[in-house]
């Protein structure tokens, strides 16, 4: 059974530095067209189901914006 993950961004903490975007091995991350409360374009995930939970984005995030959860069966 393929593991499934959920990636959560703290949208208002993000400064849109794009480092996470550049390190996603599956190229799943992008900057949102909308701006956050700080005026930055925050990072977001374009295809949640394709996330492999590698944590590359979270390890490189300078602003502690990213949480990753492994989903159980049925979630």
């Amino acid at each position: 059974m393929k593991k499934r993950f959920k990636l959560e961004f703290n949208r208002d903490k993000c400064k849109g530095c794009e480092i996470c975007v550049s390190f996603c091995p599956k190229k799943l991350l992008a900057l949102d067209k909308e701006v956050n409360s700080k005026g930055y374009h925050p990072a977001c995930i374009t295809d949640q189901d394709a996330c492999i939970g590698c944590q590359s984005c979270a390890l490189m995030c300078p602003d502690c914006c990213i949480s990753i959860y492994e989903l159980e069966e049925g979630e």
Partner: peptide, 23 residues
């Protein structure tokens, strides 16, 4: 669901004053 990665409790919830991309 199980947490794989979450912000550490060693950091306060305060937004840092550092520029975007600062190490």
């Amino acid at each position: 669901m199980k947490t794989v990665f979450a912000p550490t409790s060693g950091m306060t919830p305060v937004d840092t004053s550092y520029c975007p991309g600062c190490s």
